[in-house]
Simulated scan of single mutants.
Amino acid sequence: MNETTFSVIRRQSGSQTSSATVAFDGDQVVVEGTIWGSDGCKTADLTDVVYDADSDDLSISVGTKEMTDAGDMCTQAIMEIDYRATVTFENGLPGTVSVSHDTGGGLSPVTTATP
C-alpha cells in the first residue's frame, strides 16, 4: 500500500443509504460509495485503511463526523454523502477488498470484491 486519497464528492438530503462499489484500475483500488449522516452537519470520513499481507485483504472503513465549519445550526435532515477513496499499491493489487460503514452504531459490512 503506497498512497491513499479520500474525498467527499457530494452531500445532499436523502435517505439512510449505505452502498459502495469497488473497481480495480491498474495499480489502484477505487471505492465509490454513499454513507448517510444523521443531520446536515455530518460529512464522510475515512476512518481506517488496513492491508493485511498474510490474508492479502484490504479493509476500508468509512464513518461520519461533524464538519469543522458546521456551526450551531444543523438541518435535521438525513444526509446522503457520496465519497471516493483510492488506494494505490506498488506491488500488485490485494486479493480481497472489504468496505464497511459506521454511521454511529458500529461498523457494518457494505461490500467485498476481488480483482
Rank of each mutant, 00 (worst) to 15 (best):
V99Y: 03
A77Q: 13
V31A: 06
T112N: 07
R11S: 13
D48M: 10
D48H: 11
T4G: 10
Q16Y: 10
D48K: 08
S15F: 07
L46Q: 08
M67R: 08
V8I: 12
S59Y: 07
D102A: 12
A85E: 15
S15G: 15
V50Y: 07
E32G: 02
V110W: 03
S13F: 14
N2H: 09
G92T: 11
M67P: 03
G26W: 14
F89S: 04
S108F: 00
D69G: 00
E80N: 15
V50G: 10
L107Q: 06
S19N: 15
D52I: 03
T96Q: 12
G63L: 05
G105R: 01
T111F: 02
G63V: 04
Q12S: 13
T103W: 10
T64N: 09
I35R: 02
S38E: 09
T114Y: 03
V31E: 03
S100G: 07
V110P: 00
V31P: 01
A70E: 13
F6T: 00
G26D: 15
K42Q: 14
L93T: 06
T114C: 10
Y83P: 04
T103M: 13
D39Q: 01
R11W: 09
D72N: 11
T4L: 08
T103D: 09
G104T: 09
R10I: 01
G26Q: 12
A53E: 15
M1I: 12
Q12P: 07
D25A: 15
A77Y: 08
S100V: 03
G71T: 06
T112K: 13
S98L: 10
V97K: 00
T47M: 02
D25L: 13
A70G: 06
T114I: 01
Q16H: 14
T75R: 02
G105A: 08
P115M: 03
V31W: 05
N91M: 11
V8E: 14
T34M: 03
E90P: 15
Q28G: 05
R84F: 06
T111E: 06
T114L: 04
W36Q: 04
I9C: 04
F6I: 00
A77S: 15
C41A: 08
D39T: 06
T114W: 02
E3K: 11
G95F: 12
P109F: 01
M73T: 10
S100M: 01
V50Q: 15
G71E: 09
M79R: 06
I78K: 02
A23V: 11
